[in-house]
Simulated scan of single mutants.
Amino acid sequence: MSVTDEDTWCDTHIYASESGDTMLGGLWASEGMTNANLYSMLEIFCFFTDTFHLHDNRKQLVRRDEQQLQPGNYFCCSVSVTDEVPLICAISLPSGTRVASFRDAVLQRDRRCVITGRQAIFAHVGRWRGFEATHIFPLAYERQWNDCNYSHLITIPPTNESHGSINSVQNGIMLTWEMHQFFASYELSINPDDNYKIVCFAPDFTEYHIAGSHLDQTFTDNPLRPPDGLLRWHFRQAVLVNMRGAGEPTFEHDFPAGSDVMGEIMRGPKAGERMEFELFSRFNAMGITPVGG
């Protein structure tokens, strides 16, 4: 398992003043990332005392428009950074009675990866190899889901309401296993406030040609689809994780066969949070309430 720091591959940095002595954060200026997108993402993790403007290295005003964001340094004034802590995420495929109907409902609704458009060509015979039903709001954080009343966004409860509103089909999307890894680790997200644009926060997506594309309208028109509020939550987490400061560590999840998975996690960064995530994912899938949950 390896861990990388987003700042090692960021090609765009944002500073709090023209002196460049206080870095607010950075990102990878991926395809489809616009100047307007940068403004709106800054508003997620920064507080401004007044209307703010961005300037580039030449001290030229960067307009809030749909022009492609160019790599480089950007500067703004009268700003402070939020101390909001994002919920870390890691790959988990919980299996259990509480998630079985969730998985079936998501796969049957989408029948293709909503990010890449790749179809499950054998869906008619119940063969879903290579595809996974992915929670948007992770199952491991069901306590936070309940505490913050995210269930108010759900209009279609699971068939068995005892499985919890977090397992509604509306809290899931079907992805290929690769896209699941990227989505669950916040390396890509969907911005519902920009015509459901797919936003990539890492330079790993060139071969997929998805950065800056938009979700298919047949998906966005589906009354069973995720509500904007949940997609907005995930996008906010992705911005906090990837853009603020030097970014959060990015975890690799491809453990070779025979690996000491728990040992690898405990030797890595944020071991306690990751272990809690893994345990809560599995307990919640089986309907067991963890101590402190």
Rank of each mutant, 00 (worst) to 15 (best):
L188R: 02
I198R: 00
Q217A: 15
M174Q: 09
P223L: 12
Y208W: 11
L215Y: 08
H209I: 05
Y196Q: 03
T206H: 10
F183P: 04
H214W: 04
N195M: 12
L175Q: 04
Q181K: 13
V199G: 00
A211C: 08
A202W: 06
I190G: 01
D216A: 13
D221K: 15
E178L: 13
I166C: 02
H180F: 01
E187R: 12
H180R: 07
D221N: 15
I173V: 14
F183V: 00
E178G: 07
D216H: 11
G172A: 05
S162G: 06
H209N: 11
N167T: 02
G212V: 09
Q181H: 11
H209C: 09
H163A: 05
Y208C: 05
T206K: 14
I190R: 01
P192W: 14
A211W: 03
P223Y: 14
E187T: 13
I173T: 01
E207R: 10
Q170W: 10
A184Q: 10
G164T: 00
Q217P: 03
I210L: 03
E207L: 09
E187N: 13
L188D: 05
H209Y: 07
F201Q: 07
F182R: 10
N222T: 10
T218V: 12
K197C: 10
D221E: 15
T218N: 15
K197L: 05
S168M: 05
H180W: 06
P223A: 12
H214S: 11
M179W: 00
M179F: 05
Q217R: 15
E207K: 09
D194V: 14
E178D: 12
S185C: 12
K197N: 07
S185Q: 10
S165V: 06
S189L: 02
S165M: 11
S162R: 14
A184C: 11
H214L: 04
L188T: 04
Y186E: 02
M179I: 05
Y208E: 07
Y208F: 14
E187G: 13
T206S: 13
N222H: 15
L215E: 07
N191E: 06
V169T: 08
S165G: 08
T206L: 11
L175N: 00
D204H: 15
D216V: 10
I210K: 00
I210W: 00
T220Y: 07
S185I: 10
D194K: 14
S213I: 02
I173C: 05
S185H: 11
D193Y: 09
Q170T: 11
Q170V: 11
N222Q: 10
L188S: 04
I190A: 04
N195C: 12
P192M: 14
Q170G: 09
